[in-house]
Design a protein around this nucleic acid. Structure first.
Lengths: 216, 216, 216, 216
DNA sequence: CTTTAAGCGAGACGGTACGTCCGGTCTTATT
DNA sequence: AATAAGACCGGACGTACCGTCTCGCTTAAAG
């Protein structure tokens, strides 16, 4: 799951936004400024004033089009959701999950990070929170393929719920790096992936729930 | 949350701290106000002004003793860390973990919640972040007993790392409820506990690492 | 004291200043408040907060436009300098000087007085000090006419320096009433005027300096 | 607590005051600190906190003994009034007045000056204003000798009021340097002295008033 | 040479004002 | 007539002093 660069891909084909002329240019400048400021100064440095100045646009223009900081974040997140990112395909479930975790790890371990800033933002702005949820759901949907392939290969029981497995694999990373703020451990992505696979093999994520450990 | 101890440890022994009468009362009022405001208005409602007014104390007094909002949070967190909380002891690992998860679930599922506010705060205040880390580490240490007991009962392999197991069990809750903000699912505590137990049984958290799935 | 002109000269011509409606009204209210507060509470009562409240304007607005109390004073002084005041013309030098002195006397003898407040302010604010200097220089220039007329009438030697004479005539008033704070003496304006005239007749203020006592 | 004259002991006979050792040392340190701070930072830099710190004394001690900043100033002024200063005696009135003026000039021309600071203080503190008045009256009384000697020498008419003459001579200095803040002119002390002498010779300061210039 | 209370050190508190930053709204001038 | 720029309101921040209070501890003065 790459959350390292949500801002990169700009406005996809589905969005029927007016793309021509000044409006588009203004939006591009503002989006660029938001991303840059988030990286440099985190969410608290993302003031409308700073965005406007950096984008070379007037304060009131930002208010008019994005209403507030949450709107800005929602915009760049929704833009990022339209990108072309695809989950890895290494041939094994543990390999795929480790690879996914490594992306997360890289995005979070480096202290001041765009991802962390976005998450911080989600705690303060409803708009940002919604956009971030949408973004993440989108990613989980794409990643379901990883689990499906594993099931097809017989690595996990049929009926394994992709999302529960994926959450189980990645959640420890966010927990350690974002919430507990413990020292980054390069082995963490692999270990978390491995534990999730072990649980999955034991049937812990089968949709039919229950009777899991009993099998083991 | 006890509010009797002076100012969360630290400080030299020579400096005559004042613990009697007014100072203690002021602190108690402020701590109470912080908790109440966090619950009512979340982190963004936790302004120094609001705390002072609610505590019936002057603004400058708050600044003098707590410096800023982070200091306030650190104080109540450190106070909370001194409590007498003990992990559950249901007789089985899955039972204990489920019980733990249920506590987390209850603390997080109810929207505006103190826990969520503290986590939000940790993204904005270094002081709060440190205090929260200390608080959590403290809890994980206490919970190690749960794993030790399970190991003694033979539920998990000897050498199972308590912390890794505990993180694996609880992280999905924080992930779903705080980060993904998905709809609360009452089955989640149990499922996450169960998956962690399955992984532990498969040896995924043995300190000697590696060769886990090989057992399966 | 006119309050119609924007913001005491200065500032580039390119910057589109706004002179209409609200801005002008705000300035008028603030200037009025400054004068009233100076009279009522003296310089120490002239806080930005008090000015803002009295003017019915927000604190930050005052800071934005006037920066600090010195800026406020400079504004009202510069406004005052634009007035239409003219020195008296009684027909005799001593009469004119006495009349001038009486104005000063009236302005200073009544305890809490705007003039005294402005002078007090000039000791604490560079901006106010400069503005007050400008104001006084302006007045001395206008008063030069009094001396010129006297010279034309032959009351004082040709070449008498107006400013030195005027200072000599009025300085004792400021000295007694402001610095020494002695009890007001209604005869003082006349006496000081008379002494200055005597000195002038003796040639004490001739620009060619020296050779004064020679006249005696 | 009487703050009118904390230095000069006295007060009730019942309350046994303590004058020796520590108290005296404290006062000396504080007085020194006040003078130094006035010179370095002017009246606005003369905060109780700064005085206490510089004097190596606790804040509350200053409040206890001097009540406020005005009390501090009154104390050092009254101390200064007890000195042994004597007016010059050059042999001529103009010489004496010029010498006096030069002292004033030196005290005022050098920008940040103790004298200016005291005067500034007198505009804000009733205690300081009273003490300064006392100080100046004391000096004018001592200077009366200058005028008496001149009268004895026949330089000025008998009955010339010393104080009016002295004020006339020195006021222009204060006016130019303190109020008008014009550029210091080294010739000013002499010119002002000379003008005052001229007026005095013309009888402008005779106690019986009136009919002055008529004589010329 | 004790006693004893005046005076000091120390910390905290309530309170006023400062000057700044930022969020958001409203209004004026320009195009 | 629309919009960009400027100015405003309002809330909060963190700081500096002010003046007060309540404790103990020192120490100078009286007995």
């Amino acid at each position: 799951m790459d959350s390292s660069n949500p801002a990169s891909a700009s406005s996809g084909p589905t969005a029927r936004r007016r793309t021509g002329g000044r409006s588009a240019r203004v939006r591009a400048q503002v989006v660029e400024a938001v991303g840059a400021l988030l990286l440099e100064a985190g969410y608290d440095g993302l003031t409308v004033d700073a965005v406007a100045e950096r984008a070379g646009v007037h304060r009131t223009t930002v208010y008019r089009r994005w209403r507030d900081v949450g709107g800005l974040l929602a915009d760049i997140l929704d833009a990022a959701a339209d990108d072309t990112w695809q989950p890895p395909d290494t041939g094994s479930l543990e390999g795929d999950l480790t690879e996914l975790n490594r992306e997360v790890y890289d995005a979070l371990a480096a202290g001041h990070t765009l991802t962390a800033a976005l998450i911080a933002a989600s705690f303060r702005s409803a708009g940002a929170a919604d956009a971030l949820s949408r973004f993440w759901e989108n990613r989980y949907e794409r990643c379901a393929a990883v689990v499906d392939r594993a099931a097809a290969r017989g690595e996990v029981p049929a009926g394994t719920a992709p999302r529960a497995l994926l959450v189980s694999a990645t959640a420890p990373l966010y927990h350690e790096l974002l919430l507990l703020r413990s020292a980054p451990d390069p082995a963490l992505p692999g270990r978390a992936a491995q534990a999730a696979v072990a649980a999955a093999r034991a049937g812990a994520f089968r949709r039919t729930a229950r009777t899991p450990g009993a099998a083991g």
